[in-house]
C-alpha cells in the first residue's frame, strides 16, 4: 500500500505525530477542561482553517516553492464571503474559491512569464491581495449568512463537520499527491527541478498547479474562517502565513522540496492548535503565543534542517 517514496515520506511525519500525541497527553494532564466535549469541538473548529492553509502551503513546498500570500488570500476570502454571502447565497462559495485560485495563478504567472523569484513574487502577490481586500472591506465587518454556520459549526463536537471536512481535504490530497502522475511530478520537480525537466516535466505546469491549488485551498480556509466569525476581516489571515509554513516544516516537509507527506502536516497543524489551546486553558497571556509560535518555528526549522540534505 505505502510503497516506495511514499513510505520514506510517511517516516518523516512521525515526529509530528509524536509531538501531537505528547501535547495531547500533556494538555489533558495539565487541564481537566481539555477533554470536555466543548473544548474538543473547539479544537476541531480551530484546526479547520489552520489545517487547510497548512495543506495549501505544503503542496507548494513539495514542489520546492513557497507561497507567502496564503494568509492574505484567506483575508480576501473572508471579505468576499462577508460582502457576498447574503446577496449571492451559495454562489459566494465558488466565487471565493475562484478568487483564491486566481491569486495563486497570478503568482505562478509572475514566476513563469516574468521569471521573478517565487518567494518574492508571492510576497508581491500578498501586498496586492492585501490592497484589494482592504478596498473591498476597509475594516472588519460585513455579514456571513448564518445558514453556513448552522451547517458547519452549530454542533460542538470532536467528530463534527469541521474535523470531517479537514480530514476529507487531507485524504483527497494524500491520494492525489501519492497516487497520481501529477503528484509524482510535483515531488520530482521539488526533488530536483533539472532532473525532472530532463525527464519531461514542465516546470510551468507544476507552478500553475501548485500555486493554483494553494490559492484555492487557502481561500477555502478563509471561507470557513469567515463562517466561524460570521463576518469578514481584512487582516485576519496574516498570521496564518507563518503558521502555515511552520506547520508544514514541523510536519516534516522539506523547504528544498520533494520530501514530506501531508499526513505529517495534519499532525503538525494539530500540534499548533494544541499549543494554542494549552495557552487558553492555562490562562496564559495570549501575546506570549506569538513568541511561542516564533520559537516553535525556529525549533522546527533547526530540527528538520539538520536532518535533511546539508548544503555544500
Amino acid at each position: 500500500m505505502f510503497d516506495g517514496s511514499l513510505r520514506a515520506n510517511l517516516v518523516l511525519s512521525l515526529p509530528a505525530l509524536a509531538l501531537a500525541a505528547l501535547l495531547t497527553i500533556l494538555t489533558s494532564l495539565l487541564s481537566p477542561a481539555f477533554l470536555t466535549e466543548a473544548n474538543l469541538g473547539n479544537l476541531a473548529t480551530r484546526l479547520l482553517p489552520l489545517g487547510l492553509v497548512a495543506l495549501a502551503q505544503a503542496i507548494v513546498l513539495f514542489a520546492g516553492r513557497i507561497d507567502l500570500s496564503v494568509g492574505t488570500i484567506m483575508s480576501l476570502a473572508t471579505a468576499i464571503m462577508a460582502l457576498g454571502s447574503l446577496n449571492l447565497g451559495w454562489a459566494a462559495v465558488p466565487l471565493t474559491l475562484v478568487a483564491g485560485v486566481a491569486c495563486g495563478l497570478f503568482t505562478a504567472a509572475g514566476v513563469i512569464l516574468l521569471r521573478i523569484n517565487p518567494l518574492v513574487m508571492s510576497l508581491a502577490t500578498a501586498a496586492i491581495v492585501k490592497g484589494v481586500t482592504l478596498l473591498l472591506l476597509p475594516s472588519p465587518g460585513g455579514e456571513v449568512d448564518y445558514v453556513f454556520y448552522e451547517l458547519v459549526f452549530e454542533r460542538e463536537a470532536l467528530f463534527g463537520p469541521p474535523l470531517l471536512i479537514c480530514l476529507a481535504a487531507y485524504a483527497l490530497m494524500f491520494l492525489l499527491l501519492g497516487w497520481s502522475r501529477m503528484g509524482r511530478a510535483i515531488y520530482a520537480f521539488g526533488s530536483d527541478a533539472k532532473a525532472a525537466f530532463a525527464n519531461g516535466v514542465s516546470g510551468a505546469r507544476v507552478d500553475l498547479v501548485v500555486y493554483g491549488a494553494a490559492g484555492g485551498i487557502a481561500a477555502l480556509a478563509g471561507l470557513f474562517l469567515s463562517i466561524r466569525i460570521l463576518s469578514g476581516d481584512p487582516l485576519i489571515g496574516e498570521p496564518y502565513t507563518l503558521d502555515s509554513v511552520s506547520a508544514a516544516i514541523l510536519g516534516g516537509v522539506a523547504l528544498q522540496g520533494g520530501r514530506g507527506s501531508v499526513a505529517g502536516v495534519l499532525f503538525a497543524a494539530l500540534a499548533l492548535v494544541l499549543v494554542n489551546n494549552m495557552f487558553n486553558l492555562l490562562g496564559l497571556d495570549t501575546n506570549l503565543q506569538a513568541i511561542a509560535k516564533g520559537l516553535i518555528f525556529v525549533g522546527a526549522l533547526v530540527f528538520f534542517m539538520r536532518t535533511s540534505k546539508s548544503e555544500a
Binding site: 510576497l123 508581491a124 502577490t125 501586498a127 496586492i128 492585501k130 490592497g131 482592504l134 478596498l135 476597509p138
Partner: peptide, 10 residues
Amino acid sequence: PPAAKFIMQG
C-alpha cells in the same frame, strides 16, 4: 484609500 498603497507596493 490606504489600500492603494499595498497594491502599489506589490
